[in-house]
Design a protein around this nucleic acid. Sequence first.
DNA 1: CCTCGCTCGTGAAACCTTTCACAAATGCTC
DNA 2: GAGCATTTGTGAAAGGTTTCACGAGCGAGG
Lengths: 211, 211
Amino acid sequence: MLPRKIADSTVRRLAIYLRFLEEFQRQGQATVASDALAQRAGTTSAQVRKDLSFFGSFGTRGLGYDVVPLADRLREILGLGHRHRVAIIGAGRLAAALVDYTGFSARGFEIVAVVDRDPARIGAVLAGLTIEDVADLEHVVRRGEVEIAILVTPAGPAQALVDRLVAVGITAILNFAPVQLQVPEGVDVKNVNLAVELETLSYALSARAAT
Amino acid sequence: MLPRKIADSTVRRLAIYLRFLEEFQRQGQATVASDALAQRAGTTSAQVRKDLSFFGSFGTRGLGYDVVPLADRLREILGLGHRHRVAIIGAGRLAAALVDYTGFSARGFEIVAVVDRDPARIGAVLAGLTIEDVADLEHVVRRGEVEIAILVTPAGPAQALVDRLVAVGITAILNFAPVQLQVPEGVDVKNVNLAVELETLSYALSARAAT
DNA sequence: CCTCGCTCGTGAAACCTTTCACAAATGCTC
DNA sequence: GAGCATTTGTGAAAGGTTTCACGAGCGAGG
Ligand SMILES: NC(=O)c1ccc[n+]([C@@H]2O[C@H](COP(=O)([O-])OP(=O)(O)OC[C@H]3O[C@@H](n4cnc5c(N)ncnc54)[C@H](O)[C@@H]3O)[C@@H](O)[C@H]2O)c1
Ligand SMILES: NC(=O)c1ccc[n+]([C@@H]2O[C@H](COP(=O)([O-])OP(=O)(O)OC[C@H]3O[C@@H](n4cnc5c(N)ncnc54)[C@H](O)[C@@H]3O)[C@@H](O)[C@H]2O)c1
């Protein structure tokens, strides 16, 4: 059903198209042209059509795409057909922001557990979730049928925690710690490294200054 | 001094190399081979050498790179020679995590101001900074000699805020709001879209399941 | 001071992604 | 139901990034 190998850049754009399709749907638009999607997503119409063409052809020539069926299909492609269960590792400041955020649940990601190592935090309640002991990580993951882990601990313990997560069968990890995690084949890690983002902005600033 | 056009992917890797060079320096290593850097950064030695070669040649054949001079050069390339002054727009939950984080200051990014629209928050103190009124945005940016803005408001007001930031001369923006911002030539926006990250993980999960 | 082993620097090749351009197909109008 | 305006789907071209492979240069050690 899914083609062999889809570029990460394509998948990201599909997620962005989906967001705009949902907006069109709320506005009651029945169809949308590749060009309209492209403008909002900051790309080109050819790019939109190419991205979609990897998965089949669901447009109508002369008209565009039917908003609702295309959104459904994108949700299916992205694996958003069912809600995903997420655990947060490390109950610090970032965790507090993530747990409180309603946008994830709205998009099908349910935070079902938060763990920490600090005895002072274990037992506290964060947005309705009791913080549990990281010692029970394996149990928490299994009980919650967790599919995705968000790692928001300091860099030090990150690799060891990932090893444990992989060992209990987690294959999708969103990592905020500024380290390069080693994982076996078949496990996916996405890194969010805010310091690197700021440093690329710094580069852009000084590249412009040099001109 | 800086070459024509450097790929974003290269700049990101340079930032990552720098992190490991600093680690090597703390460990007292004097030189490092491209292969050692590559392994830690999760890339190849050829990639490391190519990335560095865009900016000159600072290695010693047979030996590798001198850790300290290379780190200095990377800092220079990335524009980290001076500290950058950062303003945070929107004093919400993410802002709280960012302001509290000591890692940014350690890497040369100084948060000098936080603004919000909510009268209930204006005047409150967040990690030593008094939250100011977004109505005074222009004044705050000028007074603080702000170079970089971090946008952590809801999506709704984001574009209008960016327009104001651009108008007071900001050319580097880190955006967390899930919108595609329109900016003129010469302004750089980096987007951090956590929902998209989770959705690409969801795609990876279902692509694997389909195999 | 010569040789050897090592690792850099770099064109060329391979690979991947985006853009182009146009035939094909559709809906709408008359 | 023919003609027209429109927009898709897609090979081919262009453009960009990564990998390859090897000559060049350096330090060490005898
Ligand atoms: N806060 C930010 O703005 C920010 C920005 C960039 C990067 N980061 C990175 O994100 C990560 C989290 O940041 P934060 O600000 O939330 O940090 P934090 O210090 O507020 O929270 C980290 C939490 O992890 C817990 N922890 C430590 N070791 C653990 C272990 N072995 N198992 C389970 N929990 C453990 C700590 O008890 C703490 O509660 C860090 O790696 C940081 O470098 C944060
Ligand atoms: N918290 C998360 O984990 C998370 C995850 C993904 C994306 N985001 C995005 O990041 C952004 C911030 O998230 P958050 O959780 O901190 O939100 P939040 O609601 O906690 O904070 C937003 C703040 O912006 C302020 N604000 C609103 N309009 C403003 C204006 N015109 N000028 C200045 N300030 C204004 C609000 O008063 C509030 O204090 C949102 O766009 C959100 O979608 C957040």
